[in-house]
Computed example of a mutant assay.
Amino acid sequence: MNLPPYSAAAARTKKRALVVYLVLGTLIMLFFLISINTGQVRLSPAALWQTLWGNGTAREELILFEFRLPRIVVALLIGTGFAVSGCILQGLTRNALAEPGILGINAGAGLAVILFISYFPDNQSASVYALPFIAFLGAGLTAALIYILSVKRDGELSPSRLLVTGVAVAAAIASLILVLTIRLDPAQYQFVSIWLAGSIRGSSWQFVIALLPWLALLIPLVLLKSQVLNILALGDLTASGLGANVPRQRMALLAIAVALAGSCVAVGGGIAFVGLIAPHLARRLVGPQHQYALPVSALLGALLLIVADAVSRMIFTSGEIPTGIVVALIGAPYFLMLLAKGKR
């Protein structure tokens, strides 16, 4: 069997990735326009165009610039962050089922946020910017606990043990969150229950400003480390033989994944499965090389969440359901399908 030269195969992969970038970018723009005009109040194309150029009415400008645009931007950012975080975790653990929500990282971030809201309910404007740091702390402590419980005695990370440990820790934290929410007053309980379900309703430009720096800093950093992820995905022994400092690089990448997931949880709540679906589909489209899989995962995550957010507003004309529930309706069957495939 004659295999094509590496340069030819690499060129084909790069060309395919460029096509995927273009298609996904086009779909995101399409659903961006659809999402702008989705809601209880419809904006005609002419009114939308005039409002975008500053010629709309005060009501149309309020709807577009204060309600819909920040919500759409937040959905795109959260989808991107969760997807990149999931792609990193799947590469580090060599497990296609690894995802911030399934591994308990989202639960740890959520617990920290709920504790902060419970004991520091005042000064809401400051808490918007503080929540990503609080969530990162909770997610980091949870990830450290899961990591310690999953590492074997010889120092090698066990992917199967990581998944089981993550699920167990997530269940324990979920029980603790339930106890805490029962003790909240009615107003706080309503906010926390909706937030835990994964709602981006009520997003404002404050949330965009709070989340954007995290993604703008961390995503380019992980793209620069894409080749390191490729090496670590080969296994600890092989990576060490190629000269990689496995513990140091793994901890650095794990910290990036935790920070991305934690900041997204702080703004969007407990949205799960984005970090599972997007990286898995990305590898199917462009292969396992992370210099291509990471950008495609980011685009797929953004597309998935903007579609889910639009659908959440389309289902009921008089209201909406949390975006996280729509994503779960897609992600849970997909997760079960991957589990079924793993048994074959």
Score class of each variant (00 low, 15 high):
A272G: 08
A9Q: 07
I88E: 00
V286D: 00
K152D: 13
L218K: 01
S193Q: 10
A239W: 08
S127N: 15
L89E: 02
L196S: 02
P279E: 07
A112N: 04
F82R: 02
A259T: 06
P279Y: 05
F207G: 13
R68P: 03
Q291D: 08
T142R: 01
I200T: 14
G101Y: 00
E61M: 10
G319A: 07
I72M: 02
L294T: 00
L131N: 06
S175N: 12
M314Y: 05
T51H: 11
E60K: 14
Q50V: 11
I200K: 04
G166Y: 09
S158Y: 10
E156C: 11
P213T: 10
A257W: 00
L180F: 11
Q289H: 15
R248G: 12
F67K: 05
F335E: 00
G91Y: 03
G86H: 07
A139C: 05
T142Q: 04
A11E: 06
V41I: 12
G86D: 05
A98E: 02
T13I: 13
Q249D: 13
G101H: 01
L89K: 00
A244W: 12
P70L: 06
A197I: 06
I330A: 13
P333H: 08
A171L: 10
I114R: 02
V74S: 02
L223N: 10
L30I: 13
S35C: 14
N37E: 15
L141P: 01
L77M: 06
P247W: 14
G287P: 05
Y6A: 14
G262S: 11
Y119T: 13
L24R: 02
A83E: 01
G241H: 13
D122C: 08
M29W: 14
L92I: 09
S158G: 10
L281D: 07
W53R: 15
R16A: 08
R201W: 14
L184C: 07
S85E: 02
L24K: 01
A187K: 15
L33N: 15
I330T: 08
F273L: 07
I177T: 11
L48C: 10
S263D: 03
P45M: 11
Y334M: 10
L131H: 04
N2Q: 12
E66H: 13
R284S: 13
R313Y: 05
S203Q: 07
V274P: 00
M29L: 13
P333T: 08
Q40A: 15
L145T: 07
L76H: 02
V73M: 07
F316G: 08
V169P: 04
A216G: 15
L69G: 04
I173T: 03
T51D: 12
L294H: 00
A293H: 03
G235A: 14
E320W: 01
Y147L: 12
V222M: 09
A239S: 10
F133K: 05
C87W: 01
V23W: 12
N106A: 07
I173Y: 05
